[in-house]
Design a protein around this nucleic acid. Structure first.
Lengths: 321, 321
DNA sequence: GAAGTCCATGAAATCGATTTCGTCAAGGAG
DNA sequence: CTCCTTGACGAAATCGATTTCATGGACTTC
């Protein structure tokens, strides 16, 4: 790998001039040509590490998501990537597994790698954004918010929960259970609150056991659904507050021999790779990719020097079909 | 962010000693304590950029995959990540979209970022590994091989194609079509060859149109299936050479009103988030995660200085159920 | 007790870019 | 014609770590 010094020597100019050439400062035409030729001959690529050390910043942003195997987050990641790419930034994807420890580690890495910024779907409220924020790197929270004053992009989760539950009511269901995510995650908690609000307003019964907490994956939804079906008086419909739990729940319904077209299922999110799903399944489509592009845009503005007070953008989810 | 100099000053030692403390060289107990305390007080984190510049290497590996929204590749990525994590490495995920241009760009970035190594599912044979290889960073090809002499981890794709096709035969199908991926991708081409081998051996007819090429995504499989169903004498079964094309094909079968439990469908790979799929669907399970961990292990060995000649590891796929 | 090892340590060089500062020459104003 | 501004450009400092080299003291060994 050729260095700027070798290029300078070959071109008969100083390293400073080579640097200027590559960074757009004015350089006389003859020297431009000399540098261009020398660089081409040596296949020179500027060393990003050296540049980063000197400039104290990079063209890399970190994206921290809880689960890379969840299509919601990969779609979101696609959005971030596309937008960042346009602006000449690379994206580093990090899997936090909803583990605050891993999250913290990645945040520290982002800091010590001098990344230009961080987009984070926080695993917990404790996310030590303090560390990052005090560092000057901008942070944008996505999908979930944090108590720290940073930009955020989220979905109107309460409304999503309300829409989904209402749709189940409209389909004639009354005994509607809810499979919610782990406690403490604002996004899915709001969806659960939407469910409760509708249930209360419609004076529907919410017996013990109708609220199940589960991990965010399919196995969690599956187990929770089995618990619901084992109740003395099981529900005739269920709302899951994310997509993968919906997959697991549907699986459990099918396994139990119930007719999935009869049993009411509503999902906040989309059942991924949907094809044989009964039409009766209610889905509230979340703008995953859009969340990503919006978050990336906001981050890029901050990186560009925007210093307005933190904003929160709320996107609407819409009932599919 | 505190620097090593500030720590040194506070601890009353030289920067060299601080560096030695953090890198495990012998330092007297008193100075160890002094450095530890100073570092703690200043919340010192070593600047990775400076370290990387000096050491000419980093603890980051790049993983280049064609499609982050394909569960096969995310599972693979998980494998890579888990293994790398254990060894203290971070993984940077890059989406090549099966675009040789993007792939080349990311390879150059990997080079100029002085990444410790690259794991690559090549988008094309032209992948300019020359650039990377000449650089000294080790490279491991995964899922697909390349003409360059690098380590590789792949699946016995021919056998997978044979197993899937044979299963369709065993289920009584004779008019079996094949939806293959784009030409030039070795992995799926081998699967197609497996199909042809079985068809030839069993003297089954392979009329024009029974071989369809499609892009690797669900929409490609969907369109290809529609073309197959529109044939004057359509097939009664189909093999798709990857998972997402299988999703699309199944969708098309259902839409066309055919009974998916009757129409034979075999997929090399797994239908993701499978639940209502007819039991009759044949799936050849690919060890996605295992491909990832194996590739990561091989890469880590190379990073560790292993210089044996390039190896190719072939994993077996097994018929599901 | 002299000579030879070994080890902890600090000073200074180093990685490869960017950037400040100063110089020098050309061009414009008075 | 002289003074001043402007712009190109090179020398050298800088970013923050690692690493080489030199030194001085403690410890062995004969």
């Amino acid at each position: 790998m050729a260095t700027i010094y070798e290029v300078a020597a070959l071109a008969g100019v100083s390293p400073a001039t080579v640097s200027r050439f590559f960074n757009g400062t004015t350089v006389s035409p003859e020297k431009q040509r000399a540098v261009r030729e020398a660089a081409a001959k040596l296949a020179f690529t500027p060393n990003k590490t050296a540049r980063r050390l000197r400039k104290q910043s990079s063209e890399v942003v970190a994206l921290l998501i809880p689960d890379i195997e969840n299509p919601f987050f990969t779609a979101l990641a696609r959005g971030v990537e596309d937008r960042a790419q346009e602006a000449g930034f690379s994206v580093v994807l990090c899997n936090t597994d909803d583990d605050p420890g891993k999250e913290l580690r990645y945040l520290q890495i982002a800091a010590s790698e001098q990344m230009a910024g961080v987009i984070l779907a926080p695993a917990s409220d404790e996310a030590d954004l303090g560390a990052i924020a005090s560092l000057g790197s901008p942070v944008v929270a996505v999908d979930r918010t944090t108590p720290y004053p940073v930009d955020a992009v989220k979905v109107d989760n309460r409304a999503a929960g309300i829409a989904a539950t209402t749709a189940l009511f409209d389909a004639g269901h009354r005994r509607i259970a809810c499979i919610a995510g782990p406690v403490g995650i604002e996004a899915t908690e709001d969806r659960f609150l939407g469910w409760r609000q509708v249930m209360t307003a419609r004076r529907a019964a919410m017996p013990d056991g109708f609220l199940q907490h589960a991990n965010f994956r399919a196995d969690g939804g599956h187990a929770a659904m089995q618990r619901l079906l084992a109740l003395p008086e099981p529900p005739d419909a269920v709302l899951t507050t994310n997509n993968l739990m919906g997959v697991g729940a549907l699986q459990a319904v099918v396994e139990a021999g119930a007719d999935p077209a009869r049993f009411g299922l509503a999902v906040v999110g989309e059942l991924p790779f949907l094809f044989l799903t009964p039409r009766s399944v209610v889905q509230v489509r979340l703008p995953a990719r859009h969340l990503g592009t919006t978050a990336a845009s906001m981050l890029l503005e901050r990186i560009g020097g925007d210093t307005q007070p933190p904003r929160t953008v709320v996107l609407r989810a819409e009932l599919a079909r």
